[in-house]
Design a binder for these strands. Structure first.
Length: 742
DNA sequence: GAGCACTGC
C-alpha cells in the first residue's frame, strides 16, 4: 500500500446553499436543470485578490522565432539581473502565498528520501512553478539538470518565463525551455521546461537521460502517448542509474548520478501511478479555486444544442452580469448554436442587455479567436461557444457561468492486422475529471456557476478519466522510436498496455515501409526514417525522394501534411469564395500537387512581402497563414536533417509530377485504393470501401487509382488528401510485384 | 455529394 501524506494548504470545504435561478421569460419551457448540491468538485475559497498565477496561458506570449531562439541559446543569460526591486518583492510575496508553500519542507523531505514521489495538486496550488525551484534550492538535484515535462509547447515556454522571473533572471539562463523550433537554454540552465515529445526525442540520443538528475512529469493525468512512453522509460532508467554501485559494475554507468522522479497530476489516479512505481509515496496539495455551484438537469437532454440555448437565455435574463462559456463537441454544433442564439437574441425586449457570441475552436482563423479575450462592451454579456480547447489549452478571463453539454469528440484509431486501420472522430460523453475541469473554468476569478445539461445520475455513471492515448492511437511512430532504443513495444512495462491489434497493425506498417525486417529487426532504412521528425509513412516518402530526385518538392509537401493546422479555411458563410480561390491552385493529379502549388505561390509572397503582406495574401486566398508558416519551420528542420543524413534536399524534378507521386506511393503503400466498377473505391491492402472526402480536389472525379494521406470515419469512411496515381506506379512498389497489379 | 476535438517531434 502506498503511504499517503497530506500537506497543509488553504482549503475550506464549501456548502452549496444557493437556490437556482428562476425562469421568467422562458416560462413555457421546462427548466432543463435542477439544483443539486455537489461535493465532487473540490471547491476552495481563495484569499481575496489572489488568483492562480502559476500558469499564464492566456493569449500567446510573444515567442522568439526559431532563429532568434537559437541565438539566445548560444548567448545565454547567466547573470542575474537587478530587476525593479518592488516588482521583485511582490513576486516573492505571491510565491509565499501559494498553497504549496506551507508544505515545502515536508515535500522536500519526501523527495529526498524517495526515488519516486507522486504529487497530486489541484489547480492553483503552484506545484508546477514552485517544486522545481524548491528542488534546485535544496540542492537535491546536485550538479544535474531538472527537467519539467509539459504536454503543450505554450505551457513549457510560458512557465519557464514565469519561473525565470521569480528567480530574477531572464529565461534561457538558470531557467530555460526546449520545445520544437524554439529553445532558450545555456550552460547555466538548471531548470528546463520541455515538452514530453522533446524529452522522448532526447532519449534517442541519450538513453539514460544522463544530463538530468531530476525529471518531473507534469500533467501526467493527461496520459498523452509521449507521457506514457516517458513513464515507462524513466522507470527502467532509474533501475539502471540507481542500482547499488557494485551492481552497476565498471564503466560509464557506475559514474552516473541517481535519478529522482516526480510525477505531478491533477486527478484521483494517484493509486495507479503509485502502483506503477512500486508503491511510491503519494502527496496531496490543495489548490486554490473560488467556489462553483453545480446544477444538473432533472431529465436527460437529447438535444443538447437546444438545451444549451435555453439555459443560456435563462442565465442571460435572470442572472447578474458575468460571461458565459458553453462547452460543445465541435465546430458544427458551435455554428448551429451561434445562429440560434443570434436569432433568439433579436426577439428579446429592447431594454434587455446585449449579447456578443464568440465561437472558439482550433480551426478558427486567429483573428476571430482573439475576439474572446477582448472584454464585452458595457451592458453586454459575452457568450463563448468553445470546444475542448477551452478546457486545458486556453484560459478565458471573465467567465462566471459554464454550460457543459457533457459531450466531446474523440479520435480513436481502429487497428487492423493489415495495417490499414483508420481514425474515427465521433462525439461521445466526457469523463468525470473533464466535467470537473469544465466546471472549474467558472471559478477562476470569483464564485461561479456550472450548468450541466445531464442528470446527476449520468454524471455518476461517467468514467473517472479518459482512456490513455496509448490505448486508442496509431502506434507505428512510437514503435519505430522504441525500436531505435532497442526496445519492444510488446514486452515493455506500461501503465496501460496497448492493444495487441494496435501493435500488430504498427508492426505491419513498419514492415511494409521497410523500417523493420521480417524478424522485426530495425533496418538501416528504419533508422534513417526515425531521424526525421515525421510520421513513418511521410518519412518513407522523404527517403524515397532521394532516388526519385525530388526531395525539394517532397519536403515542401510533407511539411504541410504534418503541420498541425489545416491549409485551407472553409467557413460556412463564404464557401463559394473559398472554393473559387482554391481553384487557382488546383493540379489535375490531386491534392498533393495542389499543396505544392500553394507552397510555391506562398514562397514567392514570402520573398516579396513582409509579415502583414503575407497574412493579407493568405486571407485573400482562404489559406491558413499559421499552417504555412509552421510548414516553413518544419521544412527548414527537415532540410537540416537531410544535410546531416547526407541527402541533397535541393534535388528537384521541376514541374514533373511523376517523381513526386512515385515517392509518395513509397510511403503510402497501405493508403491506396482502386476504382470499382460501381464507382466506389476499394482499399488495395484492406477490406474497406472508401469515399473521397468532400474537401478533396478529386472529390467527384473517377480516377482508376488513388493514394491518400489518411482515412477518417465520420458518416462514411473518407479518404483525405487524395492524389490520382497511375496503377503502374503502385505496381512498381516491390511489395506488390507478386500481386500482378497493373 | 458533404465536413474536421486536442496535442507532439
Amino acid at each position: 500500500m502506498a503511504k499517503i501524506a497530506a500537506l497543509k494548504g488553504v482549503s475550506r470545504s464549501h456548502k452549496i446553499s444557493d437556490s437556482g435561478p428562476h425562469s421568467k421569460r422562458l416560462k413555457k419551457r421546462e427548466r432543463p436543470w435542477v439544483d443539486v448540491s455537489d461535493d465532487e468538485l473540490h471547491v476552495k475559497r481563495a484569499k481575496k485578490g489572489t488568483g492562480d498565477r502559476s500558469k499564464n496561458l492566456n493569449g500567446s506570449p510573444s515567442k522568439p522565432s526559431a532563429l532568434e531562439s537559437k541565438k539566445k541559446a548560444k548567448i545565454g543569460h547567466p547573470s542575474r539581473h537587478l530587476a525593479n526591486g518592488t516588482k521583485q518583492a511582490s513576486i516573492q510575496e505571491q510565491r509565499r502565498e501559494l498553497p504549496i508553500t506551507s508544505g515545502k519542507d515536508a515535500l522536500l523531505d519526501e523527495i529526498r528520501d524517495n526515488d519516486v514521489t507522486i504529487l497530486i495538486g489541484e489547480t492553483g496550488s503552484g506545484k508546477t512553478t514552485q517544486v522545481p525551484q524548491y528542488i534546485l534550492e535544496s540542492g537535491i538535484s546536485g550538479k544535474g539538470m531538472i527537467a519539467v515535462t509539459q504536454p503543450r509547447k505554450v505551457a513549457a515556454t510560458s512557465l519557464a518565463t514565469r519561473v525565470a522571473t521569480e528567480q530574477n533572471t531572464s529565461v534561457g539562463g538558470l531557467v530555460g525551455y526546449s520545445v520544437r523550433f524554439d529553445e532558450a537554454s545555456s550552460e547555466d540552465t538548471r531548470i528546463k521546461y520541455v515538452t514530453d515529445g522533446m524529452l522522448v526525442r532526447e532519449l534517442l540520443g541519450d538513453t539514460l537521460l544522463s544530463r538530468y538528475s531530476v525529471v518531473i512529469v507534469d500533467e501526467a493525468h493527461e496520459r498523452t502517448l509521449r507521457t506514457d512512453l516517458l513513464l515507462t522509460n524513466l522507470k527502467s532508467i532509474q533501475k539502471t542509474r540507481n542500482a547499488p554501485a557494485d551492481a552497476k559494475g565498471k564503466g560509464s554507468v557506475a559514474k552516473l548520478n541517481p535519478l529522482k522522479i516526480v510525477i505531478m497530476s491533477a486527478t484521483l489516479d494517484a493509486e495507479k501511478f503509485s502502483k506503477f512505481y512500486d508503491n511510491a509515496k503519494v502527496i496531496y496539495v490543495k489548490g486554490r479555486q473560488h467556489p462553483v455551484t453545480i446544477y444538473h438537469t432533472a431529465i436527460s437532454q437529447p438535444d443538447f444544442v437546444d438545451a444549451a440555448m435555453r439555459t443560456f437565455f435563462q442565465i442571460h435574463t435572470d442572472q447578474p452580469p458575468g460571461d458565459v462559456l458553453i462547452f460543445l463537441p465541435g465546430q458544427e454544433d458551435i455554428e448551429s448554436l451561434d445562429k440560434s442564439i443570434k436569432l433568439y437574441a433579436d426577439r428579446l425586449p429592447k431594454d434587455s442587455s446585449g449579447i456578443v457570441v464568440c465561437p472558439m475552436y482550433a480551426a478558427l482563423p486567429p483573428g476571430q479567436q482573439a475576439k474572446i479575450f477582448s472584454p464585452a462592451p458595457q451592458n453586454t454579456r459575452k457568450c463563448i461557444l468553445a470546444t475542448n480547447i477551452a478546457e486545458t489549452s486556453i484560459t478565458i478571463p471573465g467567465i462566471k457561468y459554464v454550460i457543459d453539454t457533457g459531450k466531446c469528440k474523440e479520435k480513436r484509431y481502429i487497428a487492423r492486422d493489415s495495417g490499414t486501420g483508420f481514425d474515427t472522430l465521433l462525439t461521445k460523453d466526457i469523463t468525470k475529471s473533464s466535467a470537473m475541469q469544465r466546471a472549474g473554468r467558472a471559478g477562476r476569478e470569483s464564485i461561479g456557476f456550472c450548468f450541466r445539461l445531464y442528470t446527476e445520475e449520468s454524471f455518476k455513471a461517467l468514467p473517472d478519466s479518459a482512456e490513455p492515448e496509448i490505448r486508442r492511437c496509431a502506434l507505428s511512430s512510437s514503435l519505430l522510436q522504441l525500436k531505435c532504443l532497442g526496445q519492444d513495444l510488446e514486452q515493455l512495462d506500461f501503465m496501460d498496455k496497448p492493444d495487441w491489434e494496435a501493435i500488430a497493425s504498427a508492426l505491419k506498417t513498419l514492415y511494409l515501409l521497410g523500417a523493420i525486417d521480417n524478424q522485426k529487426h530495425l533496418t538501416k532504412l528504419g533508422r534513417d526514417m526515425a531521424v526525421l521528425p515525421l510520421e513513418p509513412h511521410l518519412a518513407r516518402a522523404v527517403v524515397a525522394s532521394q532516388e526519385c530526385g525530388c526531395t525539394l518538392e517532397i519536403i515542401d509537401i510533407v511539411s504541410v501534411l504534418s503541420a498541425s493546422s489545416k491549409l485551407f479555411f472553409d467557413s460556412t458563410d463564404e464557401r463559394e469564395a473559398a472554393a473559387e480561390a482554391r481553384r487557382k491552385f488546383r493540379h489535375s493529379s490531386g491534392d498533393h500537387m495542389t499543396i505544392l502549388n500553394v507552397v510555391r505561390s506562398y514562397q514567392e509572397i514570402v520573398a516579396s512581402e513582409n509579415k502583414s503582406g503575407r497574412k493579407e495574401w493568405c486571407k485573400k486566398q482562404f489559406l491558413n497563414d499559421r499552417c504555412l508558416s509552421e510548414a516553413r519551420d518544419i521544412r527548414d528542420q527537415l532540410r537540416e536533417v537531410c544535410v546531416r543524413m547526407g541527402v541533397d534536399w535541393r534535388s528537384s524534378c521541376g514541374d514533373d509530377e511523376q517523381p513526386v507521386l512515385r515517392s509518395l506511393v513509397r510511403g503510402l503503400v497501405q493508403q491506396a485504393a482502386f476504382l470499382q466498377p460501381d464507382g466506389s473505391y476499394k482499399q488495395l491492402m484492406g477490406p474497406s470501401i472508401v469515399k473521397i472526402h468532400p474537401s478533396s480536389s478529386l472529390c467527384d472525379k473517377k480516377v482508376p487509382a488513388i493514394i491518400y494521406d489518411e482515412l477518417v470515419y465520420t458518416s462514411h469512411i473518407y479518404a483525405r488528401g487524395v492524389s490520382s496515381v497511375p496503377r503502374k506506379l503502385i505496381a512498381e512498389v516491390s511489395v506488390f510485384k507478386n500481386k500482378n497489379i497493373g
